[in-house]
Design a protein around this nucleic acid. Structure first.
Lengths: 245, 245
DNA sequence: GAAGTTATTATGTCTGCACATAATAGCCCC
DNA sequence: GGGGCTATTATGTGCAGACATAATAACTTC
């Protein structure tokens, strides 16, 4: 890099290659944590001290340490300093793609069938979870997604009609899953994964015996103004959510 | 903040309160995306232009846009510019705590029982997955974790004996889960979630009927040097992994 | 000695400025 | 017109310095 002072501070191992770039600093700090130079719970040197040691600006050290803190490896508090996390609560990123994308990413062909679309009053716990007045009607959609013609996931969705435009989209042509993502998208929400035994309807639609273990994803989404949707996705057997740490 | 020029560019809504701080900029950009000022796929103004509009330094805009890109809302490429992600692949952070912590976070008492500890040769697919030579012996541990005395999760673990110190820890006193996190920690790994029917052993240990839908977490961890462990956690019914987006 | 006030300190963020890098757009030459 | 080189441009990263903020430590005062 430019200003690279090349000063390889007194404390560095002699002969060690110069450390440059915030990613290199992050790697070096992580290495010291891994080899227990800095064991869990330990207070590590201040940004300023590290900047001197690595011969870079404090901002660069800050960038590196911030990244490690976001990953849950470090805990930082003003004045108190930076310490190695005691119990490294691993944070894993899970990607939640659109179902079509997910199927196509496996090299399979995606289709879907709209099984039902009705206006109905949702169960009370659901309405309250979404913050809607009890008794308000929503749109209830039931969709089956197929991968290479075989059942992939059963989508049971409740949708706030308020978010739809005057001319409602045709959910038999564009899946609600995808329409929402592209037309409402960027809302906040929560997601829960669980394992549940297939109910009668799910078993029938997915073509599995009742009681089969299904991977279930439940998601609520809302904007600051209003609730958008609640969806329950019951995946066909064999489904896995994978991620790297 | 300090240099706050308070210039509220020509394009801002009249009377709007001053935008300050990178988080405010992130919020404002996200708002414009949500209200479709900048629809999906759209190229948004350059950092420089936004810096002028918001009356701040380019670095501050950069910070805000980078955060949104990390969240998957924006896609950035040098020279090409910054555009709103077409299909917002939502990325959710899942926290993977130590089991004891997880139980205690529910306000329950954590105990565990080491059901078995043997040296054995792991199945070939497992050895190859961990990158170990087939035929090499590992330590096979079976542990049941309890929450308030009731089965919580069944832990089936294969452990590379090479990572243990000369005097092996007593896994009946400290759970392998926790020992690894505090003594080996900060390794890389992958995680998979799935739903599976309880096998005979799991059913017996967890006290549920065979075939019950169980939430299963499988995790491999390794350091750059060697494989550490593979673990399969079969959770008692009712377990959920939850996260916010 | 307890309680409240002030000083200190490490991180958090911002400003300008600069150079690095990647990818596109334009140009030239054949 | 096609292929390859060059210029341009937006983001990526860096530096030095400054102020902001939170939390601890030190010091008063009663």
């Amino acid at each position: 890099m430019q200003g690279q002072s090349a000063i390889q501070g007194q404390s560095a191992i002699q002969g060690q290659s110069a450390i440059q770039g915030w990613e290199a600093i992050r790697a070096e700090v992580l290495r010291r944590i891994r080899v227990r130079d800095w064991p869990p719970g330990d207070l590590i040197p201040s940004e300023e001290a590290l900047a001197v040691e690595f011969g870079c600006a404090r901002a660069t050290v800050n960038r590196a340490l911030r990244a490690l803190a976001e990953a849950g490896v470090l805990e930082r508090r003003r004045k108190a300093g930076t310490r190695v996390a005691m119990l490294p609560v691993r944070r894993a990123m899970v990607e939640i793609p659109v179902i079509r994308q997910e199927v196509e990413a496996r090299g399979q062909v995606h289709e879907f069938r709209l099984l039902r679309q009705v206006r109905a009053v949702p169960p009370v716990p659901l309405a309250s979870r979404l913050g809607l007045p009890p008794g308000a009607a929503m749109i209830h959609l039931e969709t089956l997604h197929l991968a290479d013609g075989r059942p992939f996931v059963h989508e049971d969705r409740w949708l706030n009609p308020g978010v739809l435009p005057a001319v409602a989209p045709d959910f038999a042509a564009v899946s609600a899953n995808e329409w929402l993502v592209t037309h409402v998208g960027y809302a906040t929400g929560d997601i829960a994964f669980s394992a549940e035994a297939a109910g009668e309807r799910e078993a029938e639609v997915l073509g599995v015996p009742v009681g089969t273990a299904l991977f279930v994803t439940e998601r609520s989404t809302w904007t600051p103004e209003a609730a958008i949707t609640f969806v329950r996705l019951a995946h066909a057997p064999g489904y896995r959510v994978q991620t790297m740490v």
